[in-house]
Amino acid sequence: MLDTLRGGVGAVLGFILLLLIVATFISEVVPRLRGRSGSPELISRVRAWWVMAGLFVLAVLVGKRVGIAFVMLLSYLALKEYLSLVPQRSADRKVLLWVYLAIPLQYLWVFTGRYGMFIITLPVYLFLLLPFRLMLTGITQNFLRASSTLHWGLMLTVFCLGHLAYLLVLPPLHPAGGVGLLLYVVLVTQFNDVAQYVSGKSFGKRKIVPQVSPGKTWEGFLGGLVATAVLAVLIAPIITPLNRWEALILGLLLPAVGFIGDVTMSAVKRDLGVKDASSLIPGHGGILDRVDSLMFTAPVFFHFIYYFVYGPYR
């Protein structure tokens, strides 16, 4: 377990600890010093961050297999939430079991490092086979809706999120290895979520997508982007093989992609008439609410480094 702390991972974990302590100071200590009680919403949100960060760091540090299993569990919880949220056809109840079986299949390719199968199974084979299985129910009403919502959910929660796990089996180009890459994309994405939120709360004026997410502003988006770009450039050499220019491009790209994920899932929730995907995480909502941006940044980050950083070595 301790050998995974090498190559700067320990330093970045220390930085995460510092962020959590500062956040707790703001949510709990500062209000108390001023003789007021803090916002219960903010307090539970920060406490949930401790739990989530703790579980994630523990899983990643124990070893590659546990790290992959942890991401697999995230996929399962996210898919379960998605299928609970999106209305299904009663006739497809048994098909849902097959949809769930896509998770062990996809993560088998991660465990065994079969990149070709990892990249082709869901977008091609299941894309072709799932509608066939739906056809076998014999019910054609809402067939198109069923096949598209099921495949879309699989792509987001299993294929896209699964890229996080595949980072762990990439050959190491930096002493921090796959753990460093995983830590990097998760930290940058989650930091950007918070930075866009804080920046929007502080300076927000001009609404950016008023019909879908009225709380989001240009000031929040751009403020978060600048803060995240700085973080992305600073920690890149500590835990990743990225050079300065690659880190800068990713520092600008990931916040934008994270924002796209966030508002895309907002549109889904608005369509379904819910505020949060579930109430699993106090102050945050459901798993889908927490990983909405990560489902989009994970594959973009993965394929960026797979092409530009790993490309010359393949």
């Binding site: 399962y76 609970s84 299904q88 009663s90 109840r93 849902l96």
Partner: peptide, 15 residues
């Protein structure tokens, strides 16, 4: 009613 309705034996994971 969706996860394990009457007459079914295999539960489907749903909230």
């Amino acid at each position: 009613g969706h996860a394990l309705p009457k007459g079914e034996w295999i539960p489907v994971p749903l909230n």
